[in-house]
Amino acid sequence: MLDDRARMEAAKKEKVEQILAEFQLQEEDLKKVMRRMQKEMDRGLRLETHEEASVKMLPTYVRSTPEGSEVGDFLSLDLGGTNFRVMLVKVGEGEEGQWSVKTKHQMYSIPEDAMTGTAEMLFDYISECISDFLDKHQMKHKKLPLGFTFSFPVRHEDIDKGILLNWTKGFKASGAEGNNVVGLLRDAIKRRGDFEMDVVAMVNDTVATMISCYYEDHQCEVGMIVGTGCNACYMEEMQNVELVEGDEGRMCVNTEWGAFGDSGELDEFLLEYDRLVDESSANPGQQLYEKLIGGKYMGELVRLVLLRLVDENLLFHGEASEQLRTRGAFETRFVSQVESDTGDRKQIYNILSTLGLRPSTTDCDIVRRACESVSTRAAHMCSAGLAGVINRMRESRSEDVMRITVGVDGSVYKLHPSFKERFHASVRRLTPSCEITFIESEEGSGRGAALVSAVACKKACMLGQ
């Protein structure tokens, strides 16, 4: 009897593995994704193909990295998701002549009506938060230079001027797309009239992360975010950046690689679950690469896999709870928690219980395998993109072996128990001629924006502006 049951459990697990095998990517698959990513990057950089390229390769006008001589107080704003952060950054000489960066910050959550109302409502709310922060720190009387981390696709015309191309991540505030974001912020500050600010720089969160990590390690020339969304930036040779005049030196390019796949480059790798996630998203047909990796989508992918296993009578005796059938019910943090389970399955059992399920031991094991399959594919897909960037940098610099540091931020990278190990191992397999160091950014977005502002202020002083 026991043997029969054991055989049935083994057969069930084997069927589960057959279904989950769809998520496995072979090294040849990853090399294919990497080569296609490089081709799209090239198209994004070139003037004649930029418009139709899915990977936009947006110039950021960040050319210099901090040298350690900029000092002063800077205000930093960070808008990239449902939370908005205001930070005071003091850049100065530390002990023994070292450079020191001290920060104080406060988080504000953005109400739904500000995210989806008008641009005026959104930026009025942001300036209200700045006003509140300055009151708390008794700094209303000071006109501070301000660095703005704005983590949406922007076409820069200068370091302090950028046109919002399109909202992502659930934002829909009308009247912002096609307009200068810094102008919208300046107008809102003017409307309030109770404080003055000098907006000197606007950067993407990947750029802010790279600059913040450069402060720790001067070989950091790539910034990457794996959180709600997924994106990367890197220092490109100016001669390859056709959208900006000049051939000397390097400029940081914001790849906006989340949109890779929007022209069909990933079609052969998309599964039924991916198509369902895409169809029910706020932007169907867009940001397809990001939807395979980002935390906004990972939990939902797992939920759809679990429903398939229920329908195949391989999980929960073929019956799903009402909660499990509800879109968004299986949160991405559950994926991390399930994979963090120590082996007694308590954590998995508790999560499934909150979803109205009474799982068996085998159910718990199957749910864990589903989570591992989805998150491992995410790590491997992400590795193909980064390997594409790094191999490109090595080739354009004609280096036999390139040493490089990548600064990384984002909740999936930082909080998932195995993502970074799987990701690092896969990147290294795909970049055999590179020695890569990964560092995690601390308060990256805010500190990085302030350091970019410090560079901009120093330049302005040198130019006598």
Rank of each mutant, 00 (worst) to 15 (best):
L451S: 08
G410R: 01
E96I: 05
L165Q: 13
I130C: 07
M251R: 01
V374N: 01
Q337I: 07
C220V: 11
M34N: 00
I225E: 06
N204Y: 02
G318N: 12
I130Q: 02
D363L: 00
T362E: 12
V33C: 10
T168C: 15
H105I: 14
H50Q: 14
E28N: 03
H105C: 09
T82P: 14
V244W: 07
M238R: 02
I390P: 00
D42Q: 15
F195S: 08
Y289E: 00
F334Y: 04
T49R: 02
A173Q: 12
M107I: 09
E312L: 12
A119S: 09
K142L: 10
A232V: 11
A329R: 11
S360T: 08
E443L: 08
S396V: 14
T437K: 14
E442P: 11
A114G: 09
F84D: 08
V277Y: 10
N240M: 06
K142D: 04
V16E: 14
V338R: 01
C364Q: 02
K346R: 06
V181M: 06
Q287M: 14
H50V: 10
S151K: 13
Q286A: 13
A370Y: 00
G448Y: 07
A176K: 05
I293T: 14
T65K: 05
K346Y: 07
L315N: 01
D29V: 12
L266P: 05
K136R: 12
S453W: 10
F74Q: 04
A425T: 08
V181H: 11
E95D: 13
I348Y: 04
Y349L: 09
R191Y: 02
E319S: 12
A320E: 07
T149L: 07
G178E: 15
S441M: 11
K142H: 10
I110R: 02
G261R: 01
P111G: 09
T405Q: 08
I126R: 00
Y61W: 11
R275W: 02
V200K: 12
M8F: 11
E236P: 01
S411P: 13
E372Q: 04
K39G: 06
E256A: 07
L185Y: 08
M37N: 00
K172M: 12
S174R: 14
S426E: 13
T209F: 02
E272T: 14
Y413H: 02
N204G: 07
R46K: 08
H424F: 13
I126F: 15
G356P: 00
K39M: 12
S336L: 04
R303I: 01
K39V: 14
S433R: 12
L79K: 07
E372K: 10
K31H: 03
S353W: 05
V71W: 02
S131R: 13
E322N: 09
V199P: 11
L324H: 00
G72H: 07
N350Y: 02
S353K: 09
L146A: 08
K420L: 07
F438P: 00
R155A: 07
E177R: 06
E268R: 09
S360F: 07
L122C: 05
M238L: 14
R325Y: 11
Q138K: 03
T326M: 10
L2W: 05
L25V: 07
P359K: 11
E279T: 09
V101Y: 04
V338M: 05
H50R: 15
A379V: 07
N240C: 09
V203T: 12
I348V: 10
V455T: 11
E52R: 09
A450R: 06
T65D: 02
I390N: 02
E52M: 10
F260W: 06
S418A: 10
R85F: 09
Y234M: 02
F74G: 05
N240V: 07
S321E: 10
S426W: 09
M34S: 08
D311A: 11
V226A: 02
G328M: 12
D363V: 03
E245L: 05
G410P: 03
R333V: 08
G258H: 01
I348Q: 05
S441F: 03
L165T: 14
K291S: 01
D4Q: 04
S398Q: 03
A259F: 15
E112G: 11
G356D: 14
K13F: 14
V222S: 01
P66I: 15
M115W: 11
D194Y: 04
A208T: 07
A21G: 15
N166M: 07
M37Q: 01
S411T: 15
G261Y: 00
V374G: 01
L355Q: 09
F23N: 00
P66G: 09
E443V: 10
C461Q: 09
V222L: 03
K140N: 04
L309D: 00
S76M: 06
C233R: 01
T65E: 13
L276V: 12
T116S: 09
E120K: 00
G464I: 04
Y349P: 08
R358V: 12
S212V: 03
P153M: 08
G388I: 02
V338Y: 02
M202W: 13
L144V: 12
E399D: 14
N204H: 14
T431S: 08
S426G: 14
E272P: 13
E40K: 02
F150G: 15
D29E: 03
D42R: 10
R358S: 12
R422K: 13
E242Y: 05
V408D: 04
V86L: 10
V222K: 01
R308N: 04
M238Q: 06
G464V: 06
R403Q: 15
K420E: 02
F438D: 00
G227R: 03
G117C: 01
H424Q: 05
R377W: 00
I126T: 04
L357R: 09
V244C: 05
V305D: 00
Y125R: 04
H137S: 09
T376Y: 03
L184P: 07
L75S: 03
E290Y: 08
N179F: 14
G80F: 05
M87N: 14
I436T: 04
T431D: 00
K136C: 11
V389S: 00
A378V: 06
R403I: 13
I130Y: 02
E216P: 02
V226G: 03
L134V: 10
D132C: 07
G97H: 14
K104Y: 06
D267I: 05
N166P: 11
Q26E: 14
F438K: 03
T255K: 01
I110T: 03
L301A: 07
S69W: 13
R369P: 00
V389L: 13
T354N: 13
G328T: 05
G97R: 09
D194T: 05
F195P: 09
E221A: 04
R429L: 14
C233N: 00
T332H: 08
L184C: 13
E14T: 08
F260V: 02
G356L: 02
S54N: 11
A450W: 14
S418L: 05
M57S: 01
V253W: 02
A454H: 09
A320N: 15
R447I: 08
D160F: 05
G81Y: 06
E322K: 07
R63A: 14
M462Q: 10
S373C: 12
I19C: 14
V71I: 07
D187K: 03
E14N: 14
A114K: 13
C371P: 00
I211W: 10
A384T: 11
Q106R: 11
H156G: 14
A320S: 13
G385I: 12
D278Q: 02
K458C: 04
I348L: 09
E245K: 09
A450H: 08
A425R: 03
D278F: 00
V427F: 12
A10T: 14
E128T: 15
I130D: 00
Q323A: 09
K15Y: 09
P59L: 06
D135I: 11
W167E: 09
T354W: 05
R85W: 07
Y215L: 08
F316Q: 05
L77T: 07
G68E: 15
G410H: 03
E245P: 08
Y61V: 05
E443H: 02
G175S: 13
K420D: 02
E70F: 06
S151C: 10
A450V: 11
L430E: 00
M41W: 00
E248A: 09
E395G: 08
L45G: 00
E443F: 03
G388E: 03
L451E: 05
C364T: 09
N231M: 02
R422N: 15
K140Y: 05
Y214I: 10
D217A: 04
A11H: 08
E312N: 14
V305K: 01
I110K: 00
G80D: 08
M139V: 08
R392M: 05
T431H: 02
H50M: 11
P284E: 07
K90G: 10
S321R: 12
K169G: 08
L45I: 04
E331I: 10
V367G: 00
E312Q: 15
S445K: 15
F419W: 13
L88Y: 10
T60D: 02
V452K: 05
